[in-house]
């Protein structure tokens, strides 16, 4: 059987809100390492990878590796019933066809059980090679969200260019064009407010803004976001989940034929 107890249950709620519109059904993989997921969006353009390490849970028991197929919209409906301060426990039996979500209020005066049917999902796991990226930009997550939202009111695609001057986000549409440049800025009070550009080589890639906007639904998970880029490789948009792991989005670039 498996049983995970997450004191900061709101993390799981935030993860679901971040991915449920991108991915419909997914297999959650449970092992002694942690709770993870890898899934593509229905167009097979983007990939979501989630890792919540076992050490981040207050209690983590996983007797054997288990894959649990879930409809993320249904899972989200259930997790929305948990309060933001609730402790969430996930339980399932080996070979069973249900998963139980238990919500406990902080003062233990309300305890709820929700059972959800599991699904058989045949999903293809992709191998993601370890890569040295040509450029990595770390910036405040709220700033990145704002830029994606602003640019999508003007165009459908964004060109992200990293040079030693900074990172430039550009778009073009019927009404005109826009360029937003963020320079490295490490002279801030808090490290999460910094913009840090690690550039080994300049890089310039084109992406669909629709996906970028979808990824920024993960903004409540982390104060900062990192964008890892190399020519002709998918962009990695990573939100770290404090003390537990990460939520990563991989997005295939648009390439000239």
């Amino acid at each position: 059987m498996l049983e995970f107890r997450l004191v900061q249950g709101s993390l799981l709620k935030k993860v679901m809100e971040a991915i449920k519109d991108l991915v419909t059904d997914a297999n959650f993989e449970c092992s002694s390492t942690g709770f993870s997921l890898q899934a593509m969006d229905s167009s097979h353009v983007a990939l979501v990878a989630l890792l919540l390490r076992s050490e981040g849970f207050e209690h983590y028991r996983c007797d054997r590796n288990l894959s649990m197929g879930m409809n993320l919209n249904n899972m989200s409906k259930m997790l929305k019933c948990a309060g933001n301060d609730d402790i969430i426990t996930i339980k399932a039996d080996d070979g069973g066809d249900i998963v139980t979500f238990m919500f406990e209020s902080p003062s233990q005066d309300k305890i709820s059980d929700f059972e959800m049917k599991l699904m058989d999902i045949s999903s293809e796991q992709l191998g993601i090679p370890e890569s040295e990226y040509q450029s990595i930009v770390r910036m405040p997550a709220a700033e990145f969200q704002r830029i994606c939202k602003d640019l999508s009111s003007i165009g459908d695609t964004v060109i992200i260019s990293v040079t030693k001057e900074g990172v430039k986000f550009s778009t073009r549409g019927d009404i005109g064009s826009a360029n937003i440049v963020c320079r490295q800025n490490t002279s801030v009070d808090k490290p999460e407010e910094a913009t840090v550009i690690e550039m080994k080589e300049p890089v310039s890639l084109t992406f669909a803004l629709r996906y970028m906007n979808s990824f920024t639904k993960a903004t409540p998970l982390s104060n900062s976001v990192s964008l890892s880029m190399s020519s002709d490789l998918p962009l990695v948009v990573e939100y770290k989940i404090a003390d537990m792991g990460y939520l990563r989005f991989y997005l295939a670039p648009k390439i000239e034929d």
């Binding site: 593509m40 097979h44 991989y250």
Partner: peptide, 14 residues
């Protein structure tokens, strides 16, 4: 205009 590639163009099953 640049064409959208699928993610499977870059990452293979395995």
């Amino acid at each position: 205009a640049p064409q959208q590639r699928p993610i499977t163009f870059f990452f293979s099953p395995g």
